[in-house]
């Protein structure tokens, strides 16, 4: 949420040197490297996993991390590394899908509110404020209470939770764009509202929304993992970092690896995105440009 400010600044700060400055920024580059590695791991999961994710085996339980099992095995003998790489896939997809849902619904509401103004705006803004009265995790939990547990419901819950921020940003961007001369020009030549919205307004506000969504993925991963941690998310056979960490807690004293590796995974995913955000901030925010 506190990211909104600098993103808006960033819109105006389009300078040719930005990219090269970003690449020289420690936070941005390190964050990018971690993120790319995680994405590569998720994409290549079927190739780098050593066993089937659900291959339980009563004979190979609690093996310490070693050559055969890089991250050890869990309480029913499953290979933690294989579950870790597939778990990364699930966690990243949850974060990404939730943001896509939030962005689409939020921007749609925001564009409508910002473009039509008056009572439409008042009602939609009020609705956003009402949604914002619920702390993010609580809103997601409430949606889970309604829909019941399950991974697809987690995506919906986290996505719905992010609607207000997208709506706010889309609305304010549209309101700025609406006043611009070329929109008036389009109206004068008889364009329909839909045409103005989609052809003229939307492309102009898309960039900040995508930046917001990208930076929101970290938070979305965290929320999704929290729900799974609380037992409301992933189904037992599905490897997911939050639920892997949660179910490993019972064996913490003897087999820390079952919980700790998935925890590190979630941490790295969020860290990479926060570092990218911080890097952008440092490069674009004038205070830091000295």
């Amino acid at each position: 949420m506190n990211d909104i400010k600098f993103i808006q600044k960033s819109i105006g700060a389009k300078q040719p040197s930005t990219i090269s400055r970003l690449l020289h920024n420690f936070n941005f580059t390190v964050g990018m490297v971690i993120l790319i590695l995680l994405i590569a791991m998720a994409v290549l999961a079927p190739l780098i996993a050593t066993t089937d994710v659900n291959e339980a085996n009563p004979l190979t339980t609690f093996i310490k991390p070693g050559i055969e099992h890089p991250m050890g095995t869990d309480n029913i003998g499953r290979d933690v590394w294989s579950r870790f790489v597939f778990g990364g896939r699930v966690s990243l997809v949850v974060g990404l899908a939730a943001m896509v849902i939030g962005m689409i619904l939020g921007s749609l509401l925001g564009v409508v509110a910002g473009f039509y103004g008056s009572w439409v705006d008042s009602i939609l803004s009020w609705l956003t404020e009402v949604l914002m009265a619920f702390p993010g995790i609580l809103l997601a939990l409430t949606v889970m209470a309604i829909l019941g547990p399950g991974l697809s419901n987690v995506i919906i819950a986290v996505g719905v939770g992010s609607i207000p921020q997208f709506m706010r940003m889309a609305r304010s961007s549209v309101m700025k764009t609406r006043e611009l001369d070329y929109i008036d020009a389009a109206r004068v030549i008889g364009c329909t509202d839909a045409r103005i919205l989609f052809i003229h307004v939307l492309p102009n506000i898309l960039r900040p929304l995508i930046v917001l969504a990208t930076l929101g993925i970290g938070g979305a991963i965290l929320e999704g993992a929290s729900l799974s941690y609380l037992g409301l998310g992933a189904q037992p056979m599905t490897p997911e970092w939050g639920s892997m960490l949660s179910s490993g807690r019972a064996y913490l004293n003897n087999a820390w690896w079952i919980s700790v590796f998935p925890g590190v995974g979630i941490f790295l995913a969020i860290l990479s995105i926060n570092m990218i955000g911080e890097g952008l901030n440092e490069v674009i925010d004038p205070v830091n440009r000295q």
Binding site: N54, E55, A56, N57, P58, I76, R78, G231, P236, M237, S247
Partner: peptide
């Protein structure tokens, strides 16, 4: 899961 967490995956196995 409250009752079956410990064995459901083994049963499936």
């Amino acid at each position: 899961p409250a009752y079956e967490e410990a064995f459901m995956e083994l049963l499936a196995y």
